[in-house]
Design a protein around this nucleic acid. Structure first.
Length: 833
RNA sequence: GCGGACGUGGCGAAAUCGGUAGACGCAGCCGACUUAAAAUCGGCUUCCUUCGGAGUGCGGGUUCGAGUCCCGCCGUCCGCACCA
């Protein structure tokens, strides 16, 4: 044994090599142990790992290592979400090929991850940009195509006329292309879609089964799917046409005072073609921001079309038809009827254009048809002023209106979703080629599976604008698989969210000739614990859920939900600094409130998510070199609850480093020859073992850390004994998931065989969790006045008597008899004076 | 605007069943060791002027007892889709 300092760099390198050589963390598909699949969201290989990655993968690693210790066969894999725009941007800026840029980044980041000692099964590593991954994705795409879940339709995109490329929403800044600065145009393109809407109900109802998901994420998905039920019906128009509207409030149909259509609605479009005023209004509607917060404050505007609509329940009742800026073409039918008394937007609109406001739902006693004020009543009540609906409750009135519409043939009950089909076409090079061939005679023909993978060509240039696949001299020329005539490859590639929608299946099973083996995949799936950032709460997690259900639908998978448990971790943050002339400053440019380069005082700004633009990032690599992997891991787990943000601080990492050293010193104090009992310490060891296990299983790493601090403190204070020696050995095992390098070093130093990575979690003796003595609080009127130590399970009367006899209590009561005494066994006595 | 989460010492936080608020860590202070410093070890550290009292964003309420439950405010953060 040694009392020297823990040499983290040496230990890290040594044990990382040992784990590698022994393939300690390779998951064995033939194992008979219970399975545990622990997965963190795989990274985009942007260049280097950042602190967010370190925190994410440390959490997953602690759980994975803990599961190994509790006798599970653990699958804990790592891979690369390797397609995407940044690689093309790098190609344009630096002239490097997206493939070589990406692969170099992967090599760098893999080495960085290894440096942190994660218990990963590197034998299953995959990168989505390699044909041995995306080729299988193409096969799955064709399976979904064959099942009718893929279709093509025209859709609008942001088009940059200078760069001749489609822009993502995030690439459009103030209506201009982010790179070219050119005004962005809307263009219609034929695009591929996946029928996620076929699964809208399933995806919504499936949320109920996800009891290990955060409620917040489930709610976000629920709102995103946005199911609403109502009535879809026609208004006959004065020009002989008709307009289809959707409403969730058919019960208020007798409160209607206008009909409004979206600016994109065919009625608005045709009017705009004939009328300059209408055209100007339609154009105006398309200006301005589209976020909810902006639109909320925007004035409700309308344009009277001059048309009138006939009320379906009263042929003599005519409603004016407006084009309105608050109606969305994308939702429902793009047309609504306005009931101002019971909808605030309709109210705002009606007051502005002096339209009738008639009450049709009673607000308590208030039933008058003339609605006063500018605040719509949206609560529950009885229907009034509504002919055959009068006196009904809202829900019953809805049913009756729908029934009547269906009986009379002017409408039907209908469910609409906010969710729209998933557009997967991207007019980009660095993505999975869509395996379709366009033939003038045969149309869109799937590439025969034996011709997969459709491999991206390497010889492409980003020197000129446009999609390199589209202008490649030969790549897209191909014979039609059906008729043999000259045909063209699809040059669109798949959205990278497709790549991440099934990688967790490929990790579980990776045959060469198929995407996965269903039986083998079933052994691991669903993922037991999935950990990642909340920014993926909707898109990635919804698409992966859809893809899994689609595969189940076509008989390839047995499970409906891919991730049984989900945890969304907080961000890593840091203070921000600005110079006297308002430049962002990096932490290393600042010392003691002064900018080092200029000597000028700096301003300390808000604590924010680490980001390059604010220069408040800390590169993990030099930190790991300085303090060792274990100290970095320990810091990532300490103090902040994992779902909350963690503020990076110099003091924090120093503290973690000190604790690693402290643990190491304790290990050096384990005297093999020590004898004698220390029952109190032994009990604490068992309590800590149970507590740390519970904390890790609940992903409450900060609590596990606090328990280990407490145990370490108790061991330090305890005199030598056999129990103390055992306590040190147990503490090493309890901390092994968090500080694995130190734990291996201690394990080896204490003469144990094998690796602590293969060791079992200490066994808890339930008898050791029970205390013989309890401290009982004595309160007077709920205020703590004294404490008494009693044998556990002491009789109520004895406790009460002792409490009333206590000097302090006697003094406070001043001889008065208590009115009432409450005794909570083994906890407290409350005397009501 | 709507929806959600949260609000506890100088700071990060515990207290998950309504039962001794502030465990554990950081920062700080005092002391030991040292020629000295670092490291390490020991002690103190919610606030108020002590006996004592107050205290979990603010105001009410339920209860023997409230950080925890209920009602009403205020504030911060996150999400968003004018969703008919």
């Amino acid at each position: 044994m040694t009392n020297s300092r823990f040499n983290a760099l040496k230990a890290d390198a040594h044990w990382q090599r040992v784990w590698d050589e022994r393939q300690s963390f390779a998951a064995d598909g033939r194992s008979t142990k219970p399975r545990a699949y622990v997965l963190e969201m795989f990274p985009y290989p942007s260049g280097k790992i950042h602190m967010g990655h370190v925190r994410n993968y440390t959490m997953g690693d602690v759980l994975a290592r803990y599961r190994r210790m509790t006798g599970h066969e653990v699958l804990h894999p790592m891979g690369w979400d390797a397609f995407g725009m940044p690689a093309e941007n790098a190609a344009m800026e630096k002239g490097v090929h997206p493939g070589s840029w990406t692969r170099a980044n992967i090599a760098t980041m893999k080495a960085q991850l290894k440096r942190l000692g994660f218990a990963l099964d590197w034998s299953r590593e995959l990168a989505t940009c390699e044909p041995d991954y995306y080729g299988h994705e193409q096969a799955l795409f064709l399976d979904l195509f064959a099942a009718g879940l893929v279709y093509r339709k025209e859709s609008t995109v942001n088009w940059d006329p200078v760069d001749m490329t489609v822009l993502a929403n995030e690439q459009v800044i103030d209506g201009r292309g982010w790179r070219s600065g050119a005004l962005v145009e809307k263009r219609k393109l034929n695009q591929w879609f996946l029928k996620i809407t076929d699964f809208a109900d399933e995806l919504l109802e499936g949320l109920e089964s996800l009891d290990q998901w955060p409620d917040k994420v489930k709610l976000m998905q629920e709102n995103w799917i946005g199911r609403s039920q109502g009535l879809q019906f026609q208004f006959a128009l004065s020009d002989g046409g008709s307009v289809e509207v959707f409403t969730t409030r058919p019960d208020t149909i007798f409160g209607a005072s206008f009909v409004a259509v979206a600016a994109d609605h065919p009625i608005a479009q045709s009017l705009a073609a004939r009328s300059e005023d209408a055209a100007a209004f339609v154009a105006r509607c398309k200006q301005g921001g589209t976020t909810a917060a902006e639109l909320e404050t925007q004035e409700k505007l309308g344009f009277d079309t001059g048309l009138t609509a006939r009320h379906p329940l009263d042929p003599d009742w005519r409603l004016p038809v407006y084009i309105a800026n608050f109606v969305l073409m994308e939702y429902g039918t793009g047309a609504v009827f306005g009931v101002p008394a019971h909808d605030q937007r309709d109210m705002d609109f009606a007051r502005k254009y002096a339209l009738p406001v008639q009450r049709v739902v009673a607000d308590g006693e208030e039933t008058a048809p003339d609605f006063a004020g500018d605040t719509a009543f949206t609560g529950a009540g009885t229907i009034v002023n509504s002919r055959f609906l009068d006196g009904l409750a809202i829900e019953e009135a809805k049913r009756q209106v729908i029934a009547r519409a269906e009986a009379e043939g002017w409408g039907q009950g209908s469910t609409v979703y906010r969710l729209r089909d998933w557009g997967v076409s991207r007019q980009r090079y660095w993505g999975t080629p869509i395996p379709i061939i366009h033939c003038d005679a045969c149309g869109a023909v799937p590439v025969p599976k034996e011709q997969l993978p459709v491999v991206l060509p390497d010889d492409v240039s980003f020197a000129i604008p446009g999609n390199p696949l589209d202008r490649h001299p030969t790549w897209k020329d191909v014979a039609c698989p059906t008729c043999g005539a000259a045909a063209r490859r699809e040059t669109d590639t798949l959205d990278t969210f497709v790549d991440s929608s099934w990688y967790f299946i490929r990790f579980a099973s990776q045959p060469k000739d198929r995407p996965f083996d269903p039986a083998e995949a079933a052994q691991w799936l669903p993922v037991g614990q999935y950990i990642g950032g909340v920014e993926h709460a909707i898109l990635h997690l919804l698409y992966a859920r859809f893809w899994t259900r689609a595969l189940k639908h076509i008989g390839q998978l047995a499970i409906a939900e891919p991730f049984a448990g989900l945890f969304t971790q907080g961000m890593v943050t840091h203070e921000t600094y600005k110079s006297s002339d308002n430049r962002w400053l990096a932490p290393e440019d600042v010392r003691d409130g002064i900018e080092i380069a200029t000597g000028e005082p700096i301003t300390v700004g808000r604590i924010e998510k680490m980001s390059k633009s604010k220069k408040n990032t800390i590169d993990p690599e030099p930190i790991v070199d300085q303090y060792g992997a274990d100290a970095v891991r320990w810091f990532m787990l300490s103090d902040s609850p994992p779902e909350r943000d963690l503020e990076w601080s110099e003091n924090g990492i120093e503290g973690a480093w000190r604790f690693v050293q402290r643990l190491w010193r304790l290990v050096g104090q384990a005297e093999a020859a020590a004898e004698g009992d220390d029952l109190a310490l032994r009990k604490l060891v068992h309590r800590t073992t149970a507590g740390v296990a519970e904390a890790i299983e609940g992903l409450q790493f900060n609590k596990a850390v606090a328990l280990l601090y407490t145990l370490a403190g108790a061991i330090e204070k305890a005199p030598p004994s056999a129990d103390r020696r055992d306590a040190i050995a147990t503490m090493v095992r309890l901390s092994a998931p968090m500080v694995p390098h130190l734990a291996e070093e201690a394990w080896a130093a204490s003469g144990q065989d094998g690796l602590i990575a293969d060791a079992a979690w200490p066994v808890v003796d339930p008898a050791m969790l029970v205390d013989d003595e309890v401290t009982i609080a004595v309160q007077v009127n709920g205020k703590l006045r004294d404490t008494l130590v009693f044998a556990k399970g002491a009789a109520r009367e004895d406790v009460e008597a002792a409490a009333l006899a206590s000097d302090k209590i006697v003094r406070i009561l001043e001889g008065k008899a208590p009115r009432k005494v409450i005794v909570v066994p083994d906890r407290l006595v409350n005397i009501v004076a």
